[in-house]
Design a protein around this nucleic acid. Structure first.
Lengths: 334, 334
DNA sequence: TTCAACAATGTAATCGATTACATATTTATT
DNA sequence: AATAAATATGTAATCGATTACATTGTTGAA
């Protein structure tokens, strides 16, 4: 491997000059620069990035920790991160925890050891104290999920409560009064928020909250399916179901169909997320579209500010979702 | 940041000894080791990985280049890679080319510059000469896609031709004679193979190949949809459609339905891949299930062998797919 | 012409872990 | 007890790019 000193020798300059040609070209005389560039080309010299990283104590790499690479909700955010990172000369490492909290902490060590310049977490399901501590000392941004316990971590998220309120209200406006909810895992703040938004909407419209309409899912297709079967078996079954994720909504619809009922004719179903597949699914899902790409992009922008040391306050950036009315709630079928 | 020399000082030994405690513990006397470990603990010492990478010229990182993170075909392979990599102490960097060939070459430079110890490519849509050259000099494994032009690149793939033959034959066995095909992009060898397998199966069963049944898609939902509309508009439309990917099969089914026809009653449709969603889709897709996880895992195993320098011949590892008969072809509905 | 100010380049230390080689210590063998 | 062999530890060079500081060269003002 040719190294800088080889280039220096060929160009009859010092390594310092070669380095400057590469780092601060305008401090080098035109003539010298030319000699050096020629030598670089002739030797096909490429700087040793490992040496550079070591010396600079930076890697131009950021780590994205996602709980599940198979869940498109996260992949779509990654696309936004990747876009902005690439634009700014950062490479993206993906860390896939597969929902194992411990692995997330393993990744935090990478950050502590300066193996990456910064980190974006797509989940807050980790040890909170550790997270806050790390976020305090190193560039870290949290996306989608957030911490209720602390405002010390810069976060990009939607307003789950409001968005959940909106979509519930949409069902109410369509005339539904018996609206059930399938929540996500309630140890996640965003899932509790979606539950609250749903309840608030009902209360504001003087609809009594019926507790057996409140079911608890876990974001999986199966849990959407199972909970719906339970709901349908009630004495007084709902006429509409609001699932806290599209995947669960699909499970719900599958369950409705399995009972010989139709969506939205017999039961309306709405989801949350608007993943790629929700348009393809039949009936196409009415859902709350999260601005995934923008979430990722914004997160990366904030992270970059932190990395380069701009003294930004910890912020909570709230992005807007958009209600997508499609077939599963009946709105477009009237 | 505490460094090794701090530990050495506290433990009253040399840095060499500290390093040995970490790297080759059994060459150090028990007593000394204890002193050193105590010092490490007391100072909360963590080795500077950047310095280590630099010195060792290795990073314990591998790069996975995928054409599209949103396509679950690739994500599922990544899960297998990630599993095996983590097990062996490697971290996985994800490179997302978004189908831009140029970006793939950017990633190859990371490999050349020793920023990663090895590389797994999930696509062969790159400059072939460059690929072969890089594969010759650095640890690289190709998965899923492969090169017809060269056997110099270690590859893990299924037998697309055979698998395609099998699923086509399945349709023939169900009584279909008018079988159309929606191919993937034909600049990919695996797509040409799937086309060939389809044609071979027809010929072996003395079914005339009708050229207007051969349509060309691009792996997208939309292309499955559009091509199917064209097929349905033929004078003598097919009774079955074999799409070269599940996503296109879904598009095909959507198109069939849009014409008021039913799948599989009026037209049978089969796909290829068996992504997560194919089970959820209605009708559930009959498809050829690729062993995604195993493909990723195997690729990582081979890559590791190359990285540690075991002189392995370049190989072409062929893994078995499995036919999944579900609703979309009618097999389970008889 | 002289000197200050600035530009261009070189010298050599530095980042921190690793390791070849040298030295010191212990153990085993006769 | 003497010596060889094996074990344990230390010394110092090394990886290659970067950069503080030193040196030399150049320009312009008085």
């Amino acid at each position: 491997m040719t190294k800088m000193s080889d280039v220096a020798k060929l160009a009859k300059v010092s390594t310092a000059t070669v380095s400057r040609v590469l780092q601060k070209p305008d401090t080098v005389k035109e003539e010298t620069k030319k000699k050096v560039l020629e030598a670089i080309k002739k030797l096909d010299y490429q700087p040793n990035i490992l040496a550079r990283n070591f010396r600079r104590l930076e890697t131009k790499t950021i780590l994205v920790v996602m709980p599940n690479i198979l869940n498109n909700v996260f992949s779509e955010i990654v696309v936004g991160i990747d876009y902005e990172a690439t634009k700014n000369g950062y490479q993206v490492i993906l860390g896939n925890t597969m929902l194992e909290e411990q692995r997330a902490h393993g990744f935090m060590n990478h950050l502590k050891q300066k193996q990456v310049d910064g980190m974006i977490l797509l989940t807050a399901r980790v040890d909170i104290d550790d997270l806050v501590k790390v976020a305090n000392e190193y560039p870290l941004v949290l996306v989608s999920d957030y911490l209720e316990e602390s405002d010390l971590v810069t976060t990009v998220a939607i307003n789950n409560m409001k968005d959940s309120y909106t979509i519930t209200e949409h069902l109410i406006n369509l005339g539904h009064k018996k609206i059930a909810h399938i929540s996500g895992p309630l140890d996640m703040s965003i899932c509790r928020d979606r539950l609250s938004g749903y309840q608030d909407a009902l209360m504001d419209h003087d609809i009594h909250i019926q507790y057996d309409y409140l079911t608890k899912g876990d974001y999986s297709f199966q849990s959407g399916y199972d909970n719906t079967l339970n709901l349908l078996a009630l004495q007084n079954p709902p006429t509409a179901i609001f699932a806290a994720s599209d995947i669960m909504a699909m499970g719900a619809i599958k369950a409705v169909k399995s009972k010989g009922l139709q969506v939205p004719h017999d039961i309306a179903v709405v989801g949350f997320d608007d993943v790629e597949f929700s348009k393809i699914f039949e009936p196409a899902l009415t859902t709350m579209a999260q601005p995934f790409f923008d979430m990722g992009k914004t997160a990366m922008q904030l992270l970059k500010q932190k990395i380069v040391g701009e003294q930004v306050q910890n912020q909570f950036i709230e992005l807007k979702s958009e209600l997508k009315t499609r077939e599963s709630c009946g709105f477009n079928l009237k």
